[in-house]
């Protein structure tokens, strides 16, 4: 296995020096089932060395898109190429260069942490010695060396997740696909994983991730798309999306009749979600002042707008499942 994870990745898009190459490119990509269109003609491009996020409510088509990228679910329409190769034709060659972190933990319960890595290496045809050396390195990298010989069932949720990431790195992948990498983890474990993913990015490993944690997407992703009902709603960097769709600040208060009449009198637009009243604004002091002084409203919170505001604005607040 090559020592450095960075290699030229595309034979189709040889652009001028200095520009990034497309690791994944999708045009009109589609996945239809008999009773459902899971992914509806989406187009996107993931560039080398970036972290690209897929956000969206459950059932938006994120995981299906991931599965098409790593060649286990055949597309039913459109074009999808990874490393410049067609996913339908060159699945083996593409998969040799991918690392997959699935949503569900599918570590092998019959083996120890160390054996999980070496046996996985065998599926890539990595010689035993090389796989063993790499496995020790990866256990150290994910801070699991102490659990080397422990069976999977004895590991905590966070350790299993870290081990899955270690397993995905056994073949020095050029592209890492992470489906909900920190699902169900405590803050310590999440921060450790974030640190490792940033480290991998610095080493040149391109990453594609799905997540429900919008703070995670905001921290890690260079660019992201928000999907819903199989379509891409928006695309851009987290900062750009927040700026465009949620303004810079959010004021929150309780929707009392006084507050509402006060805002309407001042001609300020607002939204009410259950027991929460929100105002999007670039001038929070003025509005907070109006609410507190003119309306004698006591509990007013001013906070920075986040990706979560963008997400809820675009995909609505209705529960999906």
């Amino acid at each position: 296995m090559p020592g450095s994870p960075i290699h030229p990745v595309s034979n189709q898009t040889n652009r001028e020096q200095g520009s990034y190459m497309e690791v994944i490119s999708a045009h009109g990509l589609e996945k239809r089932f008999p009773d459902l269109t899971a992914v509806d003609q989406i187009s996107f491009a993931v560039e080398e060395k970036e972290i690209f996020g897929f956000l969206g409510p459950n059932g938006a088509g994120k995981t299906t898109t991931m599965k098409m990228i790593h060649c286990v679910s055949p597309k039913t329409g459109g074009i999808l190429s990874v490393f410049g190769m067609d996913v339908n034709k060159d699945a083996r060659k593409i998969k040799e260069r991918l690392g997959i972190v699935p949503q569900e933990n599918n570590l092998d319960p019959d083996f120890s942490a160390f054996q999980n890595l070496t046996i996985y290496g065998r599926y890539f045809g990595i010689p035993r010695r090389d796989a063993e050396t790499k496995a020790e390195e990866l256990l150290a990298f994910m801070q699991l060396s102490e659990k080397r010989d422990v069976l999977i069932e004895k590991l905590s949720g966070g350790m299993k997740r870290r081990l899955i990431i270690a397993r995905a790195l056994i073949n020095d992948p050029q592209l890492l696909i992470l489906d909900e990498p920190t699902i169900g983890l405590d803050p310590q474990a999440r921060h450790l994983i974030w640190e490792k993913l940033r480290h991998l990015k610095a080493e040149g490993c391109t990453q594609v991730m799905t997540t429900h944690y919008l703070d995670e997407a905001e921290r890690l992703c260079d660019r992201l798309v928000i999907m819903d009902h199989g379509k891409i709603l928006v695309e851009g960097s987290p900062e750009k999306l927040v700026r465009e769709y949620a303004g810079s600040e959010i004021i929150e208060t309780t929707p009392t009749p006084e507050a509402i009449s006060c805002l309407e009198a001042a001609d300020i637009s607002y939204d009410i979600f259950g027991d929460l009243l929100q105002v999007q604004t670039a001038t929070p002091q003025a509005i907070a002042h109006t609410l507190m002084e003119s309306c004698r409203h006591t509990t007013v919170t001013v906070r920075r707008a986040t990706l979560e505001d963008v997400f809820l604005k675009l995909t609505g607040r209705t529960l999906r499942e």
Partner: peptide
């Protein structure tokens, strides 16, 4: 599922 994510078919 884990094996199919490697080059194996």
């Amino acid at each position: 599922d884990a094996i199919i994510a490697t080059p194996l078919s």
